[in-house]
């Protein structure tokens, strides 16, 4: 009896050891933005990838700035981010290789339903921002150097204002926290549509401006340069990147729905010129 139990334990322990050993070798670490993670897209995509591939993906959801930093420091195997200019710099500096456009979604400007700044219904993000600054409206900024934050700074630039007006608040926090703050303080903010759709039921806010080409938001996947660090799982990272831009991956992205709304539009191979969509100043 005792022996059988012991051998059972031994088998169990051994198999666990083996499994964990396999895991360690075939774990792929992906740094990505909170927007892809919070929307549920990765929870929907990754299990399907893992079914057919011998890799397990560990997702580290952070802001774009931190994601690229993790890539630069060799702490992850690949990144999935949405800040074209920063990504270009990342690749140019040799930190990353094989950049591929994967998909895009868009940003929206949201605000309180009584709309004190009177920007509701517009389709020009730049003039809406100018109006917000001109009236000193309460505006909650991410202020965390994320892709959304970079987009917002770019829009202030385009509108020709320095964001230091009366109601401007830089929170230095994630999209969810900032949306909550905007709701609590009844202010405006710029958000990606995914987080907005996921949270809007709990918020006292409405969409003010959407559909402007300037609010376009492209995502790229980039492998961390394997020549810079030993021990990166480049093979696994490449498998994931190629799967994301394969027909299978792209179809799945297009089929993803949040609250019955399309969130991401697959765009691999469309060769979108990032500079035509987003002009960033670094």
């Amino acid at each position: 009896m005792m022996t059988r139990r012991l051998s059972l334990f031994a088998t169990l322990a051994l198999s666990l050891l083996l499994v964990s050993g396999v895991q360690a070798a075939d774990t792929v670490r992906l740094a990505t933005t909170t927007s892809t993670y919070n929307s549920g897209l990765l929870d929907y995509l990754l299990p399907k990838f893992e079914e057919d591939h011998p890799y397990q993906i560990q997702v580290i959801p952070v802001g774009t700035g931190k994601a690229l930093r993790l890539g630069r420091d060799g702490d992850v195997d690949l990144v999935l981010t949405h800040a074209p200019a920063a990504e270009k710099a990342f690749v140019d500096a040799g930190y990353g290789v094989e950049p591929h456009g994967v998909m895009y979604n868009d940003f929206v400007i949201v605000g309180p339903s009584d709309d004190p700044a009177g920007i509701d219904g517009g389709d020009d993000a730049t003039s809406a921002f100018a109006a917000l600054a001109g009236q000193g409206a309460t505006f909650i900024s991410r202020g965390d150097d994320s892709g959304t934050d970079k987009k917002e700074k770019h829009l202030w630039d385009e509108a020709g204002v320095t964001p230091d007006f009366e109601g401007f608040r830089a929170a230095g926090q994630g999209m969810g926290e900032v949306l909550n703050m905007a709701s609590e303080l009844q202010g405006y903010t710029l958000t990606d549509r995914g987080t907005w759709l996921a949270m809007k039921d709990k918020l006292d806010l409405e969409i003010m401006v959407e559909g402007d080409a300037a609010l376009f938001n492209p995502y790229q996947v980039i492998l961390v340069n394997p020549e810079r660090y030993d021990g990166l799982n480049t093979q696994g990272a490449r498998a994931l990147a190629e799967w994301l831009i394969s027909d299978e991956g792209q179809d799945l992205i297009d089929a993803f729905r949040l609250n019955d709304k399309v969130l991401f539009h697959a765009s691999a191979g469309e060769n979108v010129d990032p500079t035509s969509a987003v002009h960033e100043s670094d």
Binding site: G63, G65, K66, L68, R69, D144, D145, S146, Q173, G174
Partner: peptide, 8 residues
Amino acid sequence: ALETLKGE
């Protein structure tokens, strides 16, 4: 806590 999110 939050500056590190920027990678700064």
